[in-house]
Design a protein around this nucleic acid. Structure first.
Length: 280
DNA sequence: CGGCAAACCTGCGAGC
DNA sequence: TGCTCGCAGGTTTGCC
């Protein structure tokens, strides 16, 4: 599921029911997700008060009153669901249950179990192995066209692959890379190092624009992503290229019979969608 | 070190 | 109806 906009949507859902609240009960219904859950998971969390729910790249950061932080990654299919009223029967793949002192129940469901939860001890967050090599947050002021161009310089890999690299810029995934490259008019096959100057400026604007609009839409619901109240995100209806192979490109009048339309290719084992005419 | 394919795991839709 | 195949929003690993 989740790239930056989906994780941010989840963060915004969790913050109001967790921040300032005490975790009355924490239950792991299996010993592991992608990795083993932290030793004594339930006891570690029970009785803790949540200071803040933050986000870094695609990681949720649930900061606790003892200084430690529960780091949660949704993998491909993870989702959080909040129940303020009586919750329904537990569902398949409901792996972790948190209950707050306000009687709110929060369930983490993850069919593919590519997600994980780990705990960073107090003062160990910034240099935590999972976070320390992550690049700038694209919606923070530290991310600029020059910063982007600088981290692309010297990279011979296609720009598509470079943008998926979390050390270049944080939080992009397969969907938003495709959409940003479309908006910027840049071919996913172009060598990353050639994206500089005006081209980097354009890509910078495309990234910031598409992420902002996707967050406003509550993220993209392809199959698993839900907002924490169960509502769908709806940015998938705004996709220009992702999942639209064979269709006409919305940005120019090319269509499949003539010069272009939206193509689907494989790059480093993953699908790439782009307009062959408009993206150079 | 850079770049790429494979691996992790489950579910779903398409095609036979 | 039921099987097999391919595909899926991410990240890590291991191999050239």
């Amino acid at each position: 599921m989740p790239e930056l906009p989906e994780v941010e949507t989840v963060r915004r859902g969790l913050a109001p029911v967790l921040e300032g609240c005490r975790i009355a009960r924490a239950v792991a219904r299996r010993p592991d997700l992608r990795f083993p859950l932290p030793e004594g998971f339930g006891q570690r969390l029970t009785g803790r008060t949540v200071r803040r729910v933050g986000r870094r790249a695609k990681f949720l950061l649930i900061e606790l009153d003892d200084g430690s932080t529960l780091i949660s990654h949704l993998g491909m299919s993870g989702s959080f669901r909040i129940y303020t009223e009586t919750p329904p029967e537990l569902a398949r793949h409901d792996h972790v249950i948190l209950t707050t002192d306000q009687g709110v129940e929060i369930r983490y469901n993850d069919p593919r179990r590519f997600g994980f939860m780990v705990i960073a001890e107090a003062d160990q967050l910034d240099n935590h192995p999972m976070l320390k090599d992550i690049g700038p947050e694209p919606l923070d002021s530290g991310f600029t066209p020059r910063v982007l161009a600088r981290s692309l310089r010297g990279r011979k890999a296609p720009i598509k692959a470079a943008l998926l690299d979390q050390s270049v810029v944080a939080g992009l995934g397969n969907i938003y890379v495709a959409e940003a490259l479309f908006l910027a008019g840049i071919s996913p096959k172009r060598k990353a190092t050639t994206v500089a100057g005006a081209r980097a400026e354009k890509l910078y604007r495309a990234i910031v624009d598409v992420l902002g609009r996707a967050i406003e839409a509550g993220g993209s619901s392809i199959s698993d992503h839900r907002q924490t109240d169960g509502e769908l995100g709806y940015f998938q209806y705004a996709f220009a290229v992702y999942g639209r192979a064979g269709q006409a490109c919305p940005g120019c009048d090319c269509d499949i019979d003539k010069t272009g339309g939206i193509a689907r290719i494989q790059q480093s084992g993953r699908s790439t969608f782009y307009c062959t005419k408009r993206q150079r």
